[in-house]
């Protein structure tokens, strides 16, 4: 174990994985709150198209990733609050981006491994420079979220009152999605476009089932994200051939499942007696008013 950690490529994997696990858990929590999980699925796929385009043009895939995810984030942020319409628009945008990605791939005649690594990640093949970049961008994202924390939380739970209280709700929505886009861009490098969603939404979804207050949910999500990532890297190294992202997704799933099944009972026990929701609310009033 200690021997393994002396290899630079394993150190790099752990360092970058740590950055990404923390950032993904925090942004994923707000994605869940804002009902934007579908955007969390769509953005990496849109980013994939950008990366494929950059590869085609002979540029760094990261540039294409950033351009596409940030562009899409601004668009989604401006779509507004109507959930059903928004998800429809995101879906159409995503499939268009995937089609573009397909086009770029078919035009690209080079070595397919670069594209493969965008889809599935190369956490065990990243450089020290990648680690530093992940670290820098992670700091930027976490710092921004810390600065925006209270209005972001308020407007995630209750945009209507937040807006009346003077919170710039629209602007926050766009800025937040740009931060998500940044997080996705660095995460795709490492866990791949197809499995970013696991780190983004998995820990926050499980934590939201177990903890009762926002601060606790975020902390628990970070702990779970780190656990999945570290264990995932370790298991992948020990197994030799099975990729890291498989283990991360697998761990995320097997922890979510029992949390999902147990949580309702556990949370009901937290309730004090005598404050059940009233089942027949409004019936008598409706009868007299109409």
């Amino acid at each position: 174990m200690i021997n393994l950690l002396s290899y630079p490529f394993i150190q790099n994997a752990f360092l970058a994985g740590t950055c990404i696990a923390i950032v993904a858990a925090v942004t994923g929590y707000f994605l869940l709150l804002r009902g934007l999980t579908f955007a969390g699925h769509a953005l990496p796929n849109i980013g994939f198209a950008g990366a494929a385009g950059a590869v085609l043009l002979g540029l760094d895939p990261l540039l294409g990733l950033l351009a596409f995810t940030i562009g899409a984030a601004i668009g989604i942020g401006l779509l507004g609050r109507n959930l059903r319409e928004r998800d429809l628009a995101i879906g159409i945008l995503m499939t268009f981006a995937l089609a573009l990605g397909l086009l770029f791939l078919s035009l690209y005649s080079g070595y397919a491994e670069r594209v493969y690594s965008i889809l599935f990640g190369t956490i065990l093949g990243i450089s020290r420079l990648d680690v530093l970049l992940s670290f820098g961008i992670s700091l930027l994202i976490l710092g921004s979220i810390l600065l925006l924390f209270r209005p972001l939380l308020f407007s995630s739970f209750d945009p209507e009152i937040a807006e009346a209280r003077g919170v710039p709700v629209r602007l926050l929505a766009v800025v937040f999605l740009m931060l998500v886009a940044l997080a996705i861009a660095i995460a795709v490098q490492i866990v791949g476009a197809l499995l970013v969603f696991t780190l983004l939404v998995g820990p926050a979804a499980t934590a939201g089932r177990l903890a009762l207050r926002p601060g606790a949910v975020i902390l628990l999500a970070i702990v779970l994200g780190l656990l999945y990532t570290w264990l995932g890297i370790l298991l992948a190294i020990l197994s030799g051939t099975i990729p890291v992202s498989f283990f991360i997704a697998f761990l995320s799933f097997i922890v979510y499942l029992p949390a999902r099944l147990i949580a309702p009972r556990w949370q009901r026990r937290q309730q004090q007696p005598g404050s059940r929701p009233v089942a027949s609310e409004g019936l008598s009033q409706q009868a007299s008013a109409r």
């Binding site: 600065l147 209005p151 995630s156 739970f157 939201g208 009762l212």
Partner: peptide
């Protein structure tokens, strides 16, 4: 939305400082 992980005191607290910047 997602109200399950919000306690009454958290919701009420938004009225105090939910609009202020910072953590």
């Amino acid at each position: 939305e997602g109200a399950l992980s919000l306690r009454a005191r958290d919701l009420v607290g938004f009225g105090l400082d939910g609009h202020r910047w910072g953590p």
